[in-house]
Amino acid sequence: MLDFNDIQKLMDEFNGSDMRELEITSEGFHIHLSKNEVSFEKPVIAKESSEKPAIEAVEDVSALEKSEASEKDDVKAIRAPMVGTIYLKPEPDKDPYVTEGMRVHKGDIVCIIEAMKMMTEIKSDLDGVISEVLVENEDLVEFDQPLFKVTEG
C-alpha cells in the first residue's frame, strides 16, 4: 500500500526519468502519470480512505470541445481510437492520406497510429469533406482526441 510520501517519491523519480507515461493499478489503487503535452484530463487527485486509497479523476472540457459544441451540427470530428504517434502519410516521401478539402467516405484510411511498435490504420467513420486537419504528422495523440474535422454531406 502506497502512502503520500511513496507517491511523491514515485512522481519525483518519474519526472527525472526518460519515461513519457507511467500507469500503475493495484488492488483499489490507480495512478497515471504523463509528460505528454496533449492532455484532456486534469491530474488525478488522491483521496484518503480508512480502507483503500482511491483516485478521483476531475474532468475538464477543453477549449476544442467547447468550440466544437458551438459549431454547426454538420461538422463532426474523426477521433483517435487509441494513444500513440500519428502518421498522416503512408511513407515520409508520399502524399498525406487526406488533406483539407478532400472528400472521404466511411472506411477510407485517413492516417496511421503507432502504439507499441504496432501500426494501426485509422479509417473514417464519416462521409464528408475534410474541413480541417487538427494534428501534425508524428504528433503524440491521446485517446478520443479530435484528429480531423469533417463537414458531413
Rank of each mutant, 00 (worst) to 15 (best):
L126E: 06
D60P: 02
I55H: 00
M1E: 15
D144L: 15
N137F: 07
S131Q: 07
M119C: 07
E71S: 07
D73C: 02
D125F: 02
P90H: 06
T85N: 04
V44W: 00
S50Y: 05
D18P: 03
F29T: 04
I109F: 05
P146M: 02
I78H: 04
P81T: 09
S26H: 03
E91Q: 08
N15K: 12
L2N: 09
D60T: 12
K47Q: 12
E136H: 15
S70C: 06
A57Q: 11
I7A: 08
S67C: 12
L64I: 14
K52R: 09
D60M: 13
S131Y: 09
E152L: 13
T85C: 10
E136I: 01
D125C: 02
E132S: 13
T120S: 11
N15T: 01
R79C: 14
E152A: 12
H105N: 14
M118H: 04
Y97R: 10
E41F: 08
K89H: 09
I55L: 14
G16E: 10
V38P: 03
V110T: 07
M19Q: 09
D12R: 02
D12W: 00
F40Q: 07
L22A: 00
S39Q: 07
K66Q: 15
D95H: 02
L22Y: 00
D12H: 05
K76N: 02
K52T: 15
V135G: 12
D93K: 06
K42I: 01
F14E: 11
E132M: 11
T151W: 03
R103K: 13
R20M: 01
V141F: 03
S49H: 08
K106A: 12
I45R: 01
K117N: 10
S131T: 15
P90W: 06
N15S: 08
N5L: 14
I130L: 07
A115R: 01
L33V: 00
P92K: 15
L22V: 03
P43I: 10
V133W: 11
K117F: 10
P146G: 06
S49V: 05
E71C: 02
K47E: 14
D127N: 14
M116A: 08
V141I: 05
P146N: 01
A63T: 13
E37Y: 03
D127W: 06
I55C: 06
K52G: 12
S26E: 01
L126A: 11
Q8R: 10
L10E: 09
D3G: 14
G16N: 12
E142L: 11
F4I: 15
R103H: 14
E121M: 10
L2P: 12
I31S: 06
R79T: 13
P96R: 15
E27R: 04
K76Q: 10
S50Q: 08
